[in-house]
Design a binder for these strands. Sequence first.
DNA 1: TTCGTATATATCGAAACTAGATATATATTT
DNA 2: AAATATATATCTAGTTTCGATATATACGAA
Lengths: 122, 122
Amino acid sequence: MLTLKQDHSELVVLSVLSTGPSYGYAISKDIANRSDGHFKLSPSGMYPLLTKLEKSGLVTTSWEEVKAAGADPESTGRRRKWYTLSPKGHKHLSRRIEHHRQVQSILDGFVPQSFPDELANG
Amino acid sequence: MLTLKQDHSELVVLSVLSTGPSYGYAISKDIANRSDGHFKLSPSGMYPLLTKLEKSGLVTTSWEEVKAAGADPESTGRRRKWYTLSPKGHKHLSRRIEHHRQVQSILDGFVPQSFPDELANG
DNA sequence: TTCGTATATATCGAAACTAGATATATATTT
DNA sequence: AAATATATATCTAGTTTCGATATATACGAA
């Protein structure tokens, strides 16, 4: 299991939202599924991040009442908070991707391409 | 200027040390130069990191007294602390590179390859 | 000879981040 | 009826971050 740092979490969440609106639980499942279980974003990582994105205007939100088919009409039902990437968020993601690629590229200049571990044994 | 996160700092510092022993100041200059000034690792990032690497046995250290040519023989001279990648550090770096590549690869599955910012304008 | 810059290592502290645990509540499946 | 899945959210202790600060020597230029 590869735990995501916040920087990467934000990049991944924004990327997921760039394909369409979603909500916390679905995003976390999406991340787990699309990474074959390698990436995980727990509730304590997800919700503060989504709140931060909302506060900074990168996403807009709306509540959906998810009522079961045979549910008591008086019941509150389950609430689902949808997150939609705003135009500002779109631009932000664009810059973030560019930044990400640049870091990657420079990093590749330092990390040895081939690194024989065998040298260390003996 | 792209500030390095600790995770990346460690990867870069270990990578630099994999080409031969060095010391704090030289490593920080190396990082700045080899990244065309894009990466920077400040003293407050560098020394705690090096101390951590030393404590965990990934590097070994030795002090060098750098005395000036015409310096007072009684003077302490400038001290330089050399860091050498240990066999354990070599193995650690090897695993870290592998991990880095894996994260990169999974991340690429989320981040849109092409992301036209123009869509956001209008 | 003195002044500014470069070399060199190191800590401090406030703020931000991390991650497991916990809390709450509804829906579905067995 | 119980277990599991869906769904959002906070708490808290520990860790990380990063600019600012501290200390001292060496070198080059004026």
